[in-house]
Simulated scan of single mutants.
Amino acid sequence: MSETATLLVVDDEPELREILSEYFDNQGLIVHTAASAEEARAVFSKKLPDVAILDIRMPGEDGISLARWIRDQHKDMGIIMLTTAGDVVDRVVGLEMGADDYVPKPFDLRELLARVKSVLRRRSETSKENKPAREGRMHFGICELDLAMHRLYDSEGNEKPITAMEFDLLKVFAEHPNRALNRDQLMELAHNKDWGVFDRSIDLRIMRLRRKIEPNPEKPEVIKTVRGIGYMYVTS
Results as ranks from 00 to 15, higher is better:
E3L: 14
E3A: 06
A5L: 07
T6G: 05
L8F: 10
V9A: 09
V10P: 10
D11L: 04
D11H: 05
E13Y: 08
P14Q: 07
L16G: 04
R17A: 05
E18F: 04
I19M: 12
I19K: 02
L20P: 09
L20H: 09
S21D: 12
Y23A: 04
D25Y: 12
D25A: 15
Q27K: 15
L29W: 07
V31Y: 05
H32D: 11
A34R: 06
A35H: 08
A35V: 06
A35S: 14
V43S: 04
S45D: 14
L48M: 08
D50W: 01
A52T: 09
I53W: 03
L54W: 05
L54Y: 03
D55A: 10
I56K: 06
M58V: 10
M58S: 08
P59C: 08
D62N: 15
G63E: 07
W69V: 12
W69N: 11
I70K: 00
I70V: 15
I70L: 10
D72I: 00
D76E: 15
M77T: 01
I80V: 13
T83I: 01
G86V: 03
G86F: 05
V88R: 14
V88W: 10
D90N: 07
D90Y: 03
G94C: 12
G94S: 12
M97W: 02
G98N: 06
G98Y: 01
A99M: 01
D100W: 00
D101T: 04
D101L: 01
Y102M: 01
Y102T: 00
V103N: 09
P104F: 09
K105Q: 12
P106M: 11
L109P: 03
E111D: 11
E111R: 11
A114C: 01
A114L: 10
K117D: 09
L120E: 06
R122Q: 09
R122M: 08
R123T: 01
R123E: 00
S124P: 03
S124K: 12
E129A: 11
E129V: 10
N130Q: 15
K131N: 10
E135Y: 02
G136Q: 07
G136Y: 07
H139P: 11
I142R: 13
I142V: 15
L147T: 13
A148D: 15
A148H: 13
H150K: 14
L152N: 01
D154F: 05
S155F: 10
S155R: 14
E156W: 05
E156Q: 14
N158E: 11
P161V: 01
I162Y: 00
T163A: 09
T163V: 07
A164P: 01
A164S: 11
F167G: 00
L169C: 06
K171C: 10
F173S: 06
A174P: 03
H176Y: 14
H176N: 15
P177W: 09
P177Y: 10
N178S: 14
N178K: 12
A180Y: 04
L181P: 10
R183C: 00
D184H: 13
Q185E: 15
L186R: 04
W195M: 13
G196N: 14
G196Y: 11
V197M: 12
R200I: 14
I202D: 05
L204P: 02
L204N: 13
R205H: 14
I206M: 10
M207I: 07
L209F: 01
L209N: 00
R211K: 14
K212C: 02
I213Y: 06
I213R: 04
I213P: 05
P215S: 07
N216P: 02
K219H: 13
K219G: 06
K219I: 09
V226A: 04
R227S: 11
Y231V: 01
T235M: 12
